[in-house]
Design a protein around this nucleic acid. Structure first.
Lengths: 144, 144
DNA sequence: AAGATTTAAGAGTCTGTTGTCAGAAATAGT
DNA sequence: ACTATTTCTGACAACAGACTCTTAAATCTT
């Protein structure tokens, strides 16, 4: 698996918040409600969203009518921001064979080929915004 | 991380055996010797090579002058064989967001883009033989 | 002020991966 | 036969990730 379970849920939660925030971007969405929509554990999702809140990707508010919302407009939030906050950047920087210091000067036997795939994946995460994802999701009625 | 630690070591070990077997493909290479070459734990490597032996990727022989060797010529062994034996195929078949049943009919919001990267990675594993890797390794004096 | 709602934080459990170790089984050489 | 060498097997400890639960803190409503 490329991403951890936590990270996959984090992305889906951010997407859910983004979709729900289309009409009112200021409103806070209760974590309980998001957990129901994604069909994941409320407590577990709470933990994940705490990380995104600390990373300034989301903002939270306690009490009645509280919840979480995006800290920035979805056009300025990219998948890589969420992945970095939860899983770190190692996915895009580590050698396929786990050799330390694998790079252009001291490549491993699969470095060149893997670099191409790695770059493509990294570009996918770096260029895909929550805005694009939520637009696609609404337009094509996709699940998340 | 795309591959588990075990899988990365398994690939490196297979490559080491393939490189050492260039002069005498029949000979068995002691696990201890491979472990030293890769700088990994002997006992841990033993566990990993047992899996590859059970998967008919390698053959083993006990006693003095014993060890492991490739069960087939390196031209017929591909990275995907090792990955499937140790990690399974899930890497190439799972949805990026972990949604069950994600596919062409019921795609997740990132399905199409991820499918491209996934196909490229799978092709890399499916088309790269141990023979090619060990040739490259010897030719360019790469480490493993 | 009191009570209900909702996130925050920390402790704890469970599971799978990583890694270690000791003893058994097989083989070669003497 | 005996000994040294080497893989095989199963048990186990250490760790990280996944997930649960309880209590605290903040906020709104009445």
């Amino acid at each position: 698996m490329l991403l951890t379970q936590s990270c996959m849920i984090g992305i889906r939660a951010a997407l859910a918040v983004s979709v729900q925030g289309k009409d009112d971007i200021e409103a806070y969405r209760p974590i309980r409600q998001i957990a129901d929509a994604l069909d994941v554990s409320f407590h577990f999702l709470t933990k994940i969203l705490q990380v995104l809140t600390h990373a300034k990707i989301m903002e939270s508010y306690k009490g009645p009518n509280g919840g979480v919302r995006l800290a920035k407009p979805p056009e300025e939030l990219f998948l890589i921001d969420i992945v970095e906050a939860i899983d770190g950047t190692s996915v895009f920087s580590t050698c396929l064979l786990g050799l330390p210091g694998c790079g252009v000067e001291t490549p491993c036997p699969v470095h060149d080929e893997w670099a191409k795939s790695k770059d493509q994946i990294e570009r996918l995460f770096r260029e895909t915004s929550l805005a694009k994802l939520s637009d696609d999701t609404c337009e094509k009625l996709l699940r998340f």
